[in-house]
Computed example of a mutant assay.
Amino acid sequence: MGFVIRWVFAFVLLAATYNPTEWNFVRWSMANFETNLSLTVLFGLILLVGYIIYLRATLRSIGVFGMILVFAVVGTLLWVLYDQGIVSLDNPTVNTWIAVFTLSFVLAIGLSWSIVRRRLTGQADMDDVDE
């Protein structure tokens, strides 16, 4: 259940930043930048804090190579689904949602990996000693 919660928060973070609908920070800030500069900066900083938390944890737990490996596995899965005719990549809206899902999955794995590794191996990270 913990992984699902981490994935949902990563998905919300990415979808709040950009998605193919009108309801995202990028489009809202471009339309309201001049009239609501303070809110634009506040919401942008809140999103930045979320990205820093997720990216820092992901880079510390699985690193760049691990991120590339997870992207490769998910990309290959998409390739198989496309090859089997299950997924069509003709719709740009669906492609954007697939990208948001893929990125959120990578961030959720990165945030959860230290916990999974500790449960599998019994080895604690140096940051986990105080628990």
Rank of each mutant, 00 (worst) to 15 (best):
M1C: 09
G2C: 01
F3M: 08
F3Y: 10
V4C: 11
I5Y: 07
W7A: 05
W7P: 01
V8M: 14
V8F: 13
V8H: 05
L14H: 14
N19F: 00
T21Y: 06
T21S: 13
W23Q: 13
N24L: 09
F25I: 02
V26S: 01
R27N: 05
S29V: 13
A31T: 15
N32G: 02
N32M: 05
F33R: 12
N36E: 12
L37E: 06
L42Y: 03
F43L: 12
G44S: 07
L45T: 11
I46N: 07
L47I: 13
L48D: 06
L48Q: 07
I52Q: 14
I53E: 03
Y54P: 00
L55D: 15
T58Q: 06
R60Q: 14
R60C: 08
S61Q: 07
S61P: 00
I62K: 06
V64A: 11
G66W: 14
M67H: 05
L69K: 11
L69R: 11
V70C: 13
A72Q: 04
G75L: 08
T76R: 09
T76I: 07
L77Q: 00
L77N: 00
W79M: 13
L81Q: 06
L81V: 09
Y82F: 14
V87E: 00
V87H: 00
S88I: 01
S88R: 09
D90C: 10
T93N: 14
T93A: 15
N95I: 01
T96F: 12
A99I: 04
V100P: 01
T102A: 10
S104K: 03
S104W: 02
F105P: 01
F105S: 02
V106W: 09
L107P: 01
A108H: 02
L111R: 03
S112T: 01
W113M: 08
W113Q: 02
S114E: 15
V116S: 08
V116L: 12
R117D: 11
G122N: 08
Q123V: 14
A124N: 02
D125M: 13
D125Y: 13
M126P: 00
M126N: 04
D128H: 08
D130T: 12
D130L: 14
D130W: 15
E131Y: 12
